[in-house]
């Protein structure tokens, strides 16, 4: 697999604060990555370093195998950091022309990208007249101008209304569907869960986990169960070797698996014991639950 970005032992210190501590990870082509972490965990600093706007204290990173200088590599990258930054007195068209000049790509792409984000009708309006949602969409169009190998998004839905959030998500899904590698930093876990295949989890500048979303916790999932004879059910599950922790809440029993077992098998087993279920759901932990579990343990 082709490595797009490789980060090795990256560290950034601001006076007393160490924002990023010995961070290492690789970004492979074709995957959608999420960088997760609470506010102040070093997500934006990490992106700032690889995007040439923040100086690292030590450590290395290399783009596309390290054969090009960072600013040359960035011409093949599309990135949006925090809030959209454009020249307020220039129209969308003029702003994108400028970006084309910087990235050294032909201006013929402008129309296609503005249409993709639904701003073609407003192409001649000045940037300062745009709503936040439109500004963010223009930023995405701008980042896509060079048909980037990788798209980097830092909190792309921050401060948007539900409609705006939905629009941005649709665009991201569309881009991901085209096979573009994406690196998405966010603290909104359901956002990451919806689009990402891999995650890097940070806390206080340190990496807690990096790898596929499913592999975060060595977990087999859990069952949510309801029956008329709750006591008997609980008693049975506690004795079974297949289950670990069992909790009861609002008349629903939640039993965590210690080994693989599917819903059909459990249903059959309980029925044979004379326990008839009124509710049976097998679930995996959501990313949020996994994330909280992971950040708590460490």
């Amino acid at each position: 697999m082709e490595t797009i970005l490789s980060v090795h032992n990256l560290t950034k210190k601001f006076d007393f604060l160490t924002a990023v501590k010995n961070l290492s990870f690789d970004i492979e082509k074709g995957n959608v990555y999420g960088i997760l972490g609470p506010n102040g965990s070093g997500k934006s600093t990490t992106l700032g370093i690889i995007l040439n706007v923040v100086n690292r204290t030590h450590g290395e990173f290399s783009w596309f195998g390290g054969n090009t200088s960072t600013h040359e590599a960035l011409k093949k990258v599309g990135a949006i950091i925090e809030r959209p930054n454009f020249y307020p007195y220039m129209s969308a068209m003029q702003n994108l022309r400028l970006v084309c000049k910087i990235k050294e790509v032909p201006e013929s792409k402008i129309q296609e990208k503005l249409e993709l984000v639904g701003l073609w009708d407003r192409k001649d309006s000045k940037f300062r007249t745009y709503s936040l949602g439109m500004k963010q969409r223009l930023a995405i169009a701008s980042a896509l101008l060079n048909d980037p190998e990788i798209l980097i998004l830092d909190e792309p839905t921050n401060g948007l209304d539900p409609q705006g959030i939905h629009q941005i998500r649709q665009i991201i899904k569309k881009i991901a569907g085209q096979g573009t590698t994406i690196l998405l930093a966010s603290h909104l876990l359901d956002e990451v869960e919806k689009v990402c295949s891999h995650v890097v989890i940070l806390r206080k500048g340190e990496k807690l986990y990096s790898g596929p979303v499913d592999g975060m916790l060595a977990s087999y999932g859990f069952f949510e169960l309801r029956t008329a004879q709750m006591e008997k059910l609980e008693d049975f599950l506690e004795k079974s070797a297949s289950f670990g922790k069992i909790t009861r809440e609002n008349g629903t029993l939640t039993a965590y698996l210690k080994q693989e077992m599917d819903a059909e098998e459990l249903n059959k087993l309980l029925f044979e014991k004379g326990l008839v279920l009124s509710h049976l759901v097998k679930r995996k932990e959501s990313l949020e639950e996994q994330f909280l579990a992971l950040t708590k343990n460490n």
């Binding site: 040439n52 960072t70 600013h71 590599a73 990135a79 950091i81 910087i102 990235k103």
Partner: peptide, 8 residues
């Protein structure tokens, strides 16, 4: 933004 876009 200029630097991110690839200007050194």
């Amino acid at each position: 933004q200029n630097l991110i876009d690839g200007l050194s």
